[in-house]
Design a protein around this nucleic acid. Structure first.
Length: 944
RNA sequence: GGGCGGUUAGCUCAGUUGGGAGAGCAACUGGUUUACACCCAGUAGGUCACAGGUUCGAGCCCUGUACCGCCCACCA
């Protein structure tokens, strides 16, 4: 190549080496402090804030994080390029149970003393040490993904500042009566030895049995129990809905059913429905609890369903949530017969022993069952009941058993003192905000889920019997009086004042549920309760991006906390965010949930190693369809890596042809049709990408970039430029070089939110830039140029038709031939002349000639009113062309008759919008003219 | 039991206000052309789950059915 054509050596490698370059770019951003809040902003622009869903301090990056953070980063980078004052607030969650478990496990592995041996203070110290050394791994991984958080503002839920916020919130809510202490049943985890909230309980379907036990009535009491007879004359159960029973048995016992025999030791009654005719006369009478000998009342309650089971239900108020409620209404005793770790507890259990006679049977029961594990006790009790002929029936039974989501063991409803938040009260404004559109869910249907939960919300149990977390700021006086204060000193003062003397107080040992501090995240991270500049600038945050699995855990609670504590000058509550974008969970390529046990986990870091962060991000963005699951097939990541390579090579090609950024270039002044065309296409793409990101249509935005780069820019624009670059027209070449550079620069910008590394690298390498790409101004769309578009679209269609025809006719690619154009008007003649070089090159022709008559022995193409012929004589068999034309004609006939019918339908013409009718008419005219030409061509072939 | 979502090409999925269905991958045919084989050109492939209804017109709206998935729920 000669110097005069500005050609130069290419400085880019053949492919983008993500492994090497991504870290370099990351460092470039780091050194420039490129993601600090407000970096790159334009004076006067609004702020844009996202708080990261804080990952667990124990966590490492899984594919869900990668997805979630990719979407956040797209929005953040997009807004930063819009010139907004952007803050992406990063941070981590102390993750109470999870972290404590990790460190405890580590102690075991290192054969160090366990936490009880260490004591609370030392153990917590160990966790802090662990956090400093091993915690927060995930942040480096997020950096590798390209997450543009303001890392200098990293927060931790156990930070001093955030802990102050927790303290403030707890104390305020306590003083307002919205936090209180209560003794009621909680979900108790017998393995982790702590209470957990309803949300941390997972219902798992389990195969079990329904055991039917006979509970004898007090001596001397009996009743008539109805029965039915089946066809074979056997007795069967009778239900109140079945009319008259076949007969009655005299019974001196009741039959109750249970899935949990081990809890019967804590039974304190039997409940029946007040209207159940079978038991009406027994209400107020007593039964005797087998194995124990406790005399328990038969009580009436609405809870038992006469149509279910036997209609009589044993009551264990201390070990079952329903029974607890019934017990409250019927005034039944609560007897706890389990220890914290789920063993039977009878000896020296005063609740249990109260009112019992010390019979031989009781002593036997106690010696056989005391201290036994709850499941072992279940088997034993069934055996003991069977031995006494009190086991009426054993039915296999599938039911949902609550399990602790962390420990995986069945949870135990357990009677303890715990702290609760009055969620019902706090939920009211949170519901109203969404109801009234001040906070919006995207997609909107998640609002139903939100309402459904919020409207049925239960008191939130916030105390945990753990050591890692925010210790509850409550102290107890000698008689149990509670003093909630910020510090021990203040509590001491309050206590002394209360008692009128100096007393010793003791702090509540429990810590708060981790989600309690997470609920404050959107304002605690900004410095609240201090009135910081950040708080006023960045709160309310803009959009929260999260998976649907934590709407309840987190979104709902942030709404409650934010609305309660954040107010404007007029005292109007401010929502923590105006939009909640809820994305799907990432599943494997078969749609199954990823889990370690299934072995189908896709490790995002492996994908990054293999294909680069950009490729992974682009894949995830492409799959972020609103509503659907995301099924990730690693093969797709390879495909999008290829997309990156394509652009990389397009840049290489441009560079090799002297394409250089020219600040003088004004797109409005472009003269060449191809320039005006690609600029118009660029504008359309810009408009679409912008709108789609603004509407959280990440997949549409990504595919719009993809299409523009690959199908418009590479497939056509660069191909069309090849003859220009090698041609003699210096002005045309110069404009093309400047125009290509201009378009490329915009491509880098448009691509940047999706593929930040490669786009930044190309941006930096293709010109001397006065800014980082991540701070460059987002392009704006300008109006299109229809004339140029028509012309190039004609060109594309023509070349496409010729290519198809050549392939169908099996004409060798190496064979060049002429194209004969007939029936061309001035416009077409001009176009043919202008694009002669491009057409011959792209369609592999020798020349393009204007003629007045169709040449002999040629294949025919009709576009608009013009005919194009490829001479085939001596090249192919004409029967090929004949059958091709016949096939085309058949297709056209189909279309024509369809349109004829449609347009012949008066009601269509009358009712359809004017524009649709016009379009259909135009289509019909087009097909007809094409048909005419095809018919003529066929006629010629048949003559020859 | 309640609620939500899905069913479109061999596979994975798009299809935003109703005007005869698209992409990527896979398949098939061909290809050393000023970048790119992680490429280029071309081809084939669909009763849009089923049945009704509304409409001039339905993948899209309505009703029902079947199958699949998820969430919530106190069935002893």
């Amino acid at each position: 190549m000669s110097e005069s054509k500005d050609s130069q050596e290419c400085t880019l490698a053949k492919t983008f080496d993500a492994q090497t370059i991504e870290p370099v770019i990351a460092e470039l951003w780091d050194n420039a402090n490129a993601f600090a809040a407000g970096a790159g902003r334009v004076e006067g622009e609004d702020s844009f804030t996202i708080v990261i869903p804080p990952p667990n301090v124990t966590g490492s990056l899984h594919i869900g994080h990668a997805f979630n953070n990719t979407l956040q980063d797209i929005l953040v980078r997009f807004n930063r390029m819009q010139g907004r004052d952007v803050l992406w607030q990063p941070g981590m969650d102390h993750a109470g149970i999870a972290t404590q478990m990790v460190v405890e496990r580590q102690l075991i592995e290192n054969q160090e003393p366990n936490r009880h041996a260490l004591g609370r203070e030392k153990f917590v110290e160990k966790i802090w040490q662990w956090k400093e050394q091993s915690g927060g791994l995930i942040f480096n991984q997020l950096r590798r993904l390209g997450a543009s958080c303001d890392w200098s503002r990293e927060r931790f839920t156990m930070d001093e500042g955030l802990s102050r916020a927790v303290l403030e919130v707890f104390i305020s809510l306590y003083r307002e009566g919205l936090i209180y202490k209560d003794k009621r049943l909680v979900n108790w985890d017998p393995k982790l030895l702590t209470a957990i909230s309803d949300l941390e309980v997972e219902q798992i379907e389990t195969k079990g049995n329904l055991w039917h036990f006979k509970y004898p009535l007090e001596p001397g009491i009996s009743y008539q129990h109805p029965f039915n007879l089946d066809e074979e004359g056997n007795k069967s159960d009778w239900k109140p809905s079945q009319g008259e029973p076949a007969g009655y048995d005299t019974r001196d016992y009741l039959i109750v059913a249970t899935t949990r025999p081990e809890t019967m030791l804590g039974d304190t009654g039997v409940a029946v429905h007040p209207d159940d005719p079978r038991y009406r006369d027994l209400i107020g009478k007593r039964v005797i609890l087998p194995l124990v000998g406790r005399k328990m009342p038969i009580v009436a309650d609405q809870y038992p369903d006469p149509e279910e089971g036997t209609g009589a239900v044993k009551m264990t108020p201390a070990h079952d949530f329903n029974d607890f409620d019934v017990g409250n209404r019927a005034n039944l005793r609560r007897i706890n017969i389990l220890t914290q770790d789920g063993n039977i507890f009878l000896k020296e259990n005063n609740d249990f022993l109260e009112e019992l006679e010390s019979t031989h049977e009781l002593l036997d029961t106690m010696s056989r069952l005391h201290g036994k594990d709850r499941f072992e006790a279940r088997t034993l009790i069934v055996q003991m009941m069977d031995t006494r002929e009190l086991l009426a029936k054993t039915e296999p039974h599938k039911h949902m058993v609550p399990h602790g989501d962390r420990s995986g063991v069945p949870i135990e409803p357990f009677l303890t003192d715990q702290w609760y938040v009055n969620a019902h009260e706090l939920a009211k404004p949170a519901i109203a905000s969404v109801r009234e559109g001040r906070t919006n869910f995207v997609p909107k249907n998640w609002e139903n889920t939100y309402f459904n939960w919020m409207e049925n919300i239960q008191p939130w149990c916030i105390s945990r019997q753990l050591w890692w977390g925010h210790q509850i700021p409550a102290w107890y006086g000698p008689d149990g009086e509670i003093f909630v204060e910020k510090t021990e000193d203040e509590a001491q003062l309050a206590a002394d004042a209360h008692y009128g003397e100096s007393v010793s107080i003791e702090r509540d040992a429990d810590v708060l549920d981790t989600w309690f501090s997470s609920a404050l995240w959107p304002f605690s991270t900004l410095g609240w309760p201090e009135k910081t500049p950040e708080l006023s600038r960045y709160y309310q945050t803009d959009v929260l991006i999260t998976g649907f699995d934590i709407i309840f855990f987190w979104v709902a609670r942030m709404m409650m906390a934010g609305l309660h504590f954040m107010k404007d000058e007029k005292g109007t509550p401010i929502e923590p965010f105006h939009t909640v974008y809820v994305h799907a969970l990432v599943r494997d390529k078969y749609g199954a949930k990823m889990s370690k046990s299934k072995g189908n986990v896709v490790d995002p870091l492996e994908l990054i190693d293999q294909y680069g962060a950009d490729a992974l991000r682009f894949t995830l963005a492409n799959m972020a369809v609103q509503g659907g699951d995301v099924k990730l097939d690693p093969a797709r990541v390879a495909g999008f890596r290829n997309f990156g390579t394509k652009l990389w090579n397009a840049t290489r090609f441009a560079e090799m042809n002297g394409v250089q950024f020219d600040p003088q270039f004004e797109p409005q002044e472009a003269k060449l049709t191809i320039s005006r065309w690609i600029l118009a296409e660029l504008s359309i793409a810009t408009e679409e990408i912008t709108t789609k990101i603004e509407n959280y249509r990440f997949n549409d935005a990504a595919s719009a970039v993809y299409k523009f780069v690959w199908n418009h820019f590479c497939d056509w624009y660069l191909e069309l430029l090849k003859p220009v670059f090698s041609g003699e027209d210096n002005d045309a070449r110069k404009e093309s070089q400047a125009c290509a550079a201009y378009v490329l620069a915009d491509i880098y910008k448009l691509l940047h939110p999706f593929m930040p590394f490669m786009s930044e690298e190309l941006w930096q390498r293709t010109a001397t830039r006065d800014t980082l790409l991540c701070h460059a101004r987002w392009p704006s769309a300008v109006s299109g140029d229809h004339e140029a578009a028509d012309e190039i679209n004609w060109l594309i269609e023509l070349v496409g038709e010729i290519r198809s025809l050549r392939a169908e006719m099996a004409i060798k690619p190496s064979r060049v031939m002429s194209l004969i154009v007939t029936n061309a008007d001035k416009t077409i003649i001009d176009r043919v002349q202008t694009h002669d070089a491009a057409i011959t090159r792209l369609a592999r022709l020798e020349s393009v000639e204007i003629a007045t008559a169709a040449p002999k022995g040629s294949a025919h193409i009709a576009i608009g009113n013009t005919s194009y012929f490829l001479p085939l004589e001596g090249i192919v068999d004409f029967s090929e062309e004949r059958s091709r034309l016949e096939k085309e004609l058949k297709k056209l006939d189909g279309e024509i008759s369809r349109l004829d019918k449609k347009l012949g339908n008066e009601r269509f013409v009358a009712n359809a919008p004017e524009q649709v009718v016009v379009e259909e008419r135009q289509k019909l005219t087009g097909y007809r003219s094409q048909k005419d030409k095809m018919t003529a061509a066929l006629g010629r072939i048949n003559e020859e």
